[in-house]
Computed example of a mutant assay.
Amino acid sequence: MTGIDNVKLVQVIAHKVGNPTRGEALKISPNALTLNDILVQQLLTKYFLGNFNENEHFHFTHVSHLEMNEVYNYARSLFEETKDFVQHSAMIAQFLYTKSTHVKVKEGELYVATFEDVPFGNDYVKAVGIFKSETKQTFLKVFPHGDSLEMGQEEGININKLDKGCLIFQRNKEEGYIVTVVDNSNKQHDTQYWINDFLQITPYADAYHQTDKYMGLCKQFFTQEYPDKFEVPKSDQIDLMNRSLDYFKTKDEFNLKEFSEEVINHEEVIDSFMEYKRNYEQSKNFTIDENFDIHLAAVKKQAKSFKSILKLDKNFHVYIHGRRDLLEKGFDELAGKHFYKLYFDEEA
């Protein structure tokens, strides 16, 4: 998140949350942290807020009714009953403890914080933050020892990397607020307790998420389903990925019919893509519209994972940026090896 220099960290408290299946305890702190040191406030604010993507919006949900989402209720209480901050933070810690039963869930510190003047679009709002630190790093510390200097080691938190976080903006209360989330550890599907079990959030069906999900769908189809089902060479797979990326970079709006005709272009492949899309939506529990505005921030994020490198053994890496017609693949029977011909006008 950018523009956080003037954010005011109002209150923060730390609790220790273990994994009950390993006999690890839940340790509730009776008092909030003392925030007299300005530098510590600034470092905490950077640590808490620096890793969020402000374009990626979620909201609280529940299979029965929004009012039954526990974290939603705790956040609402923190916005409306600030004097009971410590009590509500303890309830959040207790609820997280009940959801930390997977074998891969690590013990860590849970921080609950309230903020003022958090940037949100063109406005500044109040926000509630819930953060968990699971990963410790070893640091070397130099200290005086008589007339000499000695060195020792300590374990601490890297303030540049937040393990897990949730920032709840005081906006859209009736729809489950507007929430941004960080989950940088235990990303396997079976350990996503932070998003699915604890927070119970789902993305807003806005332009950012539509663009992000569709480009993720394209990448999976072109790298997994397409080459396996149609037995095409790697160069054809890269060509399709490049054309789909160009489509999102050059168009203002997405249109499924237009995309299918301009990028995929083969009826059999289009049918397979549509079937894959239906299965993808079902597995993600998210419907992707056939028409939506393309969000440039989502394109920029996803473009990093669209690899256009053709790796040939350990000897050559060929970057393919376009013009698949200038690339020819063959097999040399005398050498017993595959080959590629590259046609070009000048050598840079």
Rank of each mutant, 00 (worst) to 15 (best):
K219H: 14
K219I: 04
Q220T: 10
F221H: 12
F222V: 01
T223S: 15
Y226G: 00
P227T: 04
D228F: 02
K229F: 05
V232A: 00
K234I: 13
Q237L: 01
I238V: 12
I238M: 03
I238R: 09
D239Y: 12
D239W: 04
M241H: 01
M241G: 09
R243D: 11
R243E: 13
R243H: 14
L245P: 02
L245G: 10
L245Q: 12
L245D: 05
Y247A: 04
Y247K: 10
T250H: 12
D252E: 14
D252T: 10
D252M: 06
E253S: 07
E253F: 11
E253L: 01
L256W: 03
L256Q: 11
K257W: 00
K257D: 14
K257H: 10
K257Q: 13
E258M: 11
F259R: 07
F259Y: 12
E262Y: 05
E262F: 08
I264L: 07
N265L: 09
N265I: 05
E268A: 02
V269Y: 09
I270D: 06
S272D: 02
F273L: 02
F273R: 00
E275A: 05
Y276P: 06
K277N: 10
K277H: 08
N279G: 11
N279T: 09
Y280R: 02
Y280I: 06
E281T: 09
Q282E: 15
S283I: 05
N285E: 12
N285W: 01
F286R: 02
F286G: 05
T287C: 01
I288R: 05
I288Y: 00
D289I: 06
D289R: 13
E290G: 15
E290Y: 08
E290S: 11
E290W: 02
N291Q: 10
F292D: 04
D293H: 08
D293A: 14
H295S: 08
H295R: 03
H295G: 05
L296H: 10
L296C: 02
A297F: 06
A298L: 11
V299E: 06
K300L: 03
Q302D: 01
Q302L: 08
Q302K: 13
Q302G: 05
A303Q: 14
A303G: 12
S305N: 14
S305W: 10
S305Q: 10
F306A: 04
K307A: 03
K307C: 09
S308N: 14
I309F: 04
I309G: 03
L310M: 11
L310D: 04
L310K: 03
D313G: 15
